[in-house]
Amino acid sequence: MTENIGVLGKKPSQRTGVERVVNAPLPTVYGKFQAVGYLDHDRGDEQVALVYGDIGTDQVLTRLHSECLTGDAFGSQHCECGDQLASALRAVAAEGAGVVVYLRGHEGRGIGLLAKLRAMALQAEGLDTVEANLALGLPVDARDYGVAAGILRDLGVESVRLMSNNPRKRDALQRHGVQVTEQVPLLIPPCESNITYLRTKRERLDHNLPHLDAVAHWS
């Protein structure tokens, strides 16, 4: 893997409000990545893109991963987020090139950690994930992908093969000027702890999760 990835030698982008601050090697259990750190001047968030290999500009295998402390760090089975992150990192390493943009500020589909935990408590009482957010007076999905598009443009990426089951994420990225040439499924086997959550994502949030049909017998 080379040290110069995409267009990392150029000056940080200012027109998007995203400033590239640092590029550091990051050896992981999945392979040797470059961690490219950004500052989102609009929101004040610190962001990171994990870049593997020479990514080029077109049809770059890409994952936009929303921060999920409970899933990514603690291995929660309430969602599939941790497994999706691991699968995406393995996929770009197997591909030989790709990007995983880890989006901070997206916790709980953008409502924040404490609000997400409150929503999870309501789900334990019988509400689904959509109903729980609304019961708290919060949006169902408050995420914005403008910063992700800015990061990809700074890396020189013009089009992606997007690892996601969420067509709304694809549409949002395209609205921000990054072409999605393919939506690559990222399907994680469900468990009894997350099957209701995943069914809600399919039925109420338009996620493409055909593998859930195989566990139709679960209540």
Rank of each mutant, 00 (worst) to 15 (best):
E3K: 11
N4D: 15
N4H: 13
K11V: 07
S13A: 14
Q14W: 14
G17W: 04
V18K: 10
V18S: 12
V18F: 11
E19S: 14
E19Y: 14
V21T: 12
V22M: 13
V22E: 12
Y30N: 12
G31H: 01
G31Y: 01
K32M: 11
F33R: 00
A35S: 09
G37K: 05
L39D: 11
D40Q: 01
R43L: 14
D45E: 10
E46S: 15
E46I: 15
Q47Y: 07
Q47N: 04
Q47D: 13
A49W: 08
L50T: 08
V51A: 10
V60S: 00
L61W: 05
L64Q: 02
H65N: 03
S66N: 10
C68E: 04
C68W: 07
C68S: 05
L69P: 11
T70I: 06
G71W: 01
A73E: 09
G75A: 10
S76C: 07
H78K: 14
E80R: 03
G82I: 04
D83Q: 14
L85A: 02
A86Y: 05
R90P: 08
A91H: 06
A91Q: 03
E95D: 08
G96T: 03
A97F: 07
A97N: 07
G98K: 00
G98Q: 00
V99Q: 03
V99Y: 02
V100F: 03
L103I: 15
R104G: 15
H106E: 10
E107I: 04
G110P: 12
I111R: 00
I111G: 02
A115L: 14
A115F: 15
A119I: 10
M120Q: 15
A124F: 11
G126A: 02
G126S: 03
D128T: 01
V130G: 08
E131P: 11
E131Y: 09
L134D: 05
L134A: 08
A135V: 04
L138T: 09
P139T: 07
P139W: 09
P139A: 08
A142G: 06
R143Y: 12
D144R: 09
G146Q: 10
I151S: 12
L152C: 09
D154A: 01
L155T: 00
G156K: 01
G156E: 00
G156Y: 03
V157P: 00
S159I: 00
S159T: 00
S164Y: 09
P167W: 01
P167H: 06
R168T: 07
R168H: 10
K169P: 05
K169E: 01
R170Y: 08
R170T: 08
D171Q: 12
A172G: 03
A172R: 09
Q174W: 11
Q174R: 11
R175I: 12
H176C: 13
G177W: 01
Q179M: 08
Q179G: 00
T181M: 01
V184N: 13
V184E: 07
L186S: 09
L187R: 10
L187S: 12
C191S: 14
E192A: 11
E192D: 06
I195R: 07
T196W: 06
T196L: 15
T196S: 15
Y197K: 06
L198C: 11
T200I: 01
K201W: 06
E203W: 05
E203I: 04
R204A: 12
D206W: 09
H211K: 02
D213L: 06
D213N: 10
V215N: 07
V215I: 04
V215H: 11
A216P: 05
H217N: 10
